[in-house]
């Protein structure tokens, strides 16, 4: 693209015009809409990250009947996000005494709440004993699963944005963010 400036001075007229000639209007158009596109891509990336963090949160949530884990699933069900592997995974837990109970899982799903905005997603687990599992009692160790997921979330989001900016720099144009994959660490 080249900008050609043309100055016109009228006789005795103190004003002047500038004419801008667009050699490559497509690129100009893409620049004009760069911010909109950036917002759109970023929104997609943010949502991807949220779901990835959410799956990690499910993985670090202690499980027995499945009710507590089901308490996280409302928003994932709404957006048809697959969480089956995370739901049954116990590899990140110290102990797991599994005794799946379909009724308990349904109760947990009913106790799952969320608030959903573009860049502000809140997920609330209303299973009554969730706080006891999180912070522990005088006879039971606290699990701090939300904190573990938050720290991991920082990492996932930072890495995802970092990868995206690297991609933009490498290709020298605004591209879609790479798909957020599970970070093995």
């Amino acid at each position: 693209m080249a900008l050609v400036r043309e100055y016109k001075f009228g006789s005795g007229d103190p004003t002047f015009d500038i004419t801008v000639e667009l050699v490559n209007p497509e690129q100009w158009e893409s620049w004009m809409h760069a911010n909109e596109k950036f917002q759109e891509y970023y929104k997609e990336l943010f949502r991807d990250c949220i779901f990835e963090i959410h799956r990690y949160l499910i993985r670090v949530t202690p499980v027995m009947s499945g009710r507590l884990r089901a308490g996280w699933t409302g928003i994932l069900n709404k957006y048809n996000v697959d969480y089956t592997r995370a739901f049954t995974d116990t590899s990140l837990l110290d102990h797991a005494y599994i005794n799946w109970n379909q009724q308990a899982i349904m109760e947990g799903m009913a106790e799952s709440q969320w608030m959903d905005a573009d860049f502000d997603v809140s997920i609330i687990n209303s299973v009554p004993y969730s706080e006891m599992v999180e912070f522990g009692t005088s006879k039971m160790s606290g699990q701090y699963f939300t904190n573990k997921a938050r720290y991991k979330g920082e990492y996932i989001l930072t890495k995802a944005i970092d990868d995206w900016f690297k991609e933009i720099t490498a290709k020298a144009e605004l591209v879609k963010a790479p798909k957020v994959e599970e970070v093995a660490a």
């Binding site: 522990g136 005088s138 039971m140 160790s141 606290g142 573990k148 991991k152 990492y155 660490a185």
Partner: peptide, 22 residues
């Protein structure tokens, strides 16, 4: 000790672990 300490008042300290930073 992640649960009630053997003497009160007292601190209970335990490591919970976190992912490796790489």
């Amino acid at each position: 000790n992640p649960i009630l300490p053997t003497k009160l008042p007292g601190y209970g300290i335990v490591e919970k672990g976190l992912y490796n930073l790489g």
